[in-house]
Design a protein around this nucleic acid. Sequence first.
DNA 1: TTTATTATTTTTGTATACAATAATATCTTA
DNA 2: TAAGATATTATTGTATACAAAAATAATAAA
Lengths: 251, 251
Amino acid sequence: MSRTAPTAALTESNSDSRKTSQNDHIYEEMLAAILEQRLTPGTKLSEDTLGEIFGVSRTVIRTVLQRLAHERIVRIQPNRGAFVSEPSPEEAREVLQARRLIEEGIIRAAVCNQSPADIKGLKRAVAEERLSLETGDHEAWGRLSGDFHLKLAEIARNQTLSAFLRELVSRTSLIIVQYQKGALSPCSCDEHAEIIKAIAARDEDRAIELMNAHLRACEDQLNLRENDTKADLYSIFSKPVKATGKSRGAM
Amino acid sequence: MSRTAPTAALTESNSDSRKTSQNDHIYEEMLAAILEQRLTPGTKLSEDTLGEIFGVSRTVIRTVLQRLAHERIVRIQPNRGAFVSEPSPEEAREVLQARRLIEEGIIRAAVCNQSPADIKGLKRAVAEERLSLETGDHEAWGRLSGDFHLKLAEIARNQTLSAFLRELVSRTSLIIVQYQKGALSPCSCDEHAEIIKAIAARDEDRAIELMNAHLRACEDQLNLRENDTKADLYSIFSKPVKATGKSRGAM
DNA sequence: TTTATTATTTTTGTATACAATAATATCTTA
DNA sequence: TAAGATATTATTGTATACAAAAATAATAAA
């Protein structure tokens, strides 16, 4: 297949055919698929198949997979291929701990740098979020819920921190897919709204506290016991352990 | 060139020829070259040339360059190629701000998680650092100075944060190459030693304060005025600006 | 039937070929 | 000579070919 005549992608309209952003386009497409849970943890990402789907050779698919792997959304096993990441409970705790730290820093900066337009933007984001929840657009909600945090990061005017948070938010999505206990609690919008209020009021301490509570609430909704399949089988069929045995691991 | 008969690399002994880590090996080699200032900011990284040097095809060089690009050590310009990054003053401030935030979090965790062995390890790291300074091994010092921070991160037992800091430390090296004003101040060892003491004493607040001072001192040794060549030419040949004019940019 | 071994197929890793773009050199014209 | 236009060369982007490894299927032995 020549560079000038790309076959049409099977899944995608591909409105603007700038070839510079061909990588980017496939990357966005795959990331969206993962974040919207159309691709679930553990799914094999065959290079050939993806190449056919997007109408490109394995070369460019490989580039995209490596990028996703660097962001820990995808795990590449040597000579075995790429798979949608299955974050361990340990990793889940790490990601949420990192988010608490980084989002605290972001709030500090955002409280200083905020403009009225910024606050308006945040409120708009929460309104969208609330709408998606009312209309029952579940996939959109997952995305928009993260977008609020990314918008907040933009206000902090530190692209380096924004990039880190972007990765963490994506990984959080995967974590939620894997470990969410019950249904999603829709109170998230209200918590976001409260955080905006505190920032607008320049109440740094309160904003930080609200954010921390928000993220801890998220973690509390997860079932992060060490339930590796293997370990489970062993524990199930071996002599019973003490009721208090299962260590929750130090955070 | 077949997979079974890799031509010997021109620069490298390549003692263990596990092919799994061929990428990794080239990556490490290039990273070291950049951090030890054998490759300076702006240097063009030609795929062909690197391929010849390491005795591999452009395919694997490309993979390595993309990895370095993701870590912001290398910048890839579409259709132009890869170059060693030239971080802007803005980016330099961002990186150091991010480091202050993340290393504060790391210290908090390290103060909790520390074992006597950890403290011993840190002290050993500083001793090595001091030795390299005394023997005048400048390149080693640059590396070891960063290693202290990475060892500290390990004690925090959060690989996600460690990975972020690893990237930031690498980028800091590039920043120092570009913007260091005078000679390097060798007091860094002493500052590291003080930080260890505070951590061992479980004095979280003092450890954090020392780390912040340490990182701010680093930033203060940089000349981060907006001296883009272009902007400079304009300002040099246009009517003189007020003496106080040059904004230092808000942190 | 089950297990172990071998053969086949599939899939990844790497090199290479070719196309497209950028960089450089050559030629033309004022 | 200088400036612009054109041709040439070099370099990156992508597809493809082939080798190595892994996964799967088929066969043989217990």
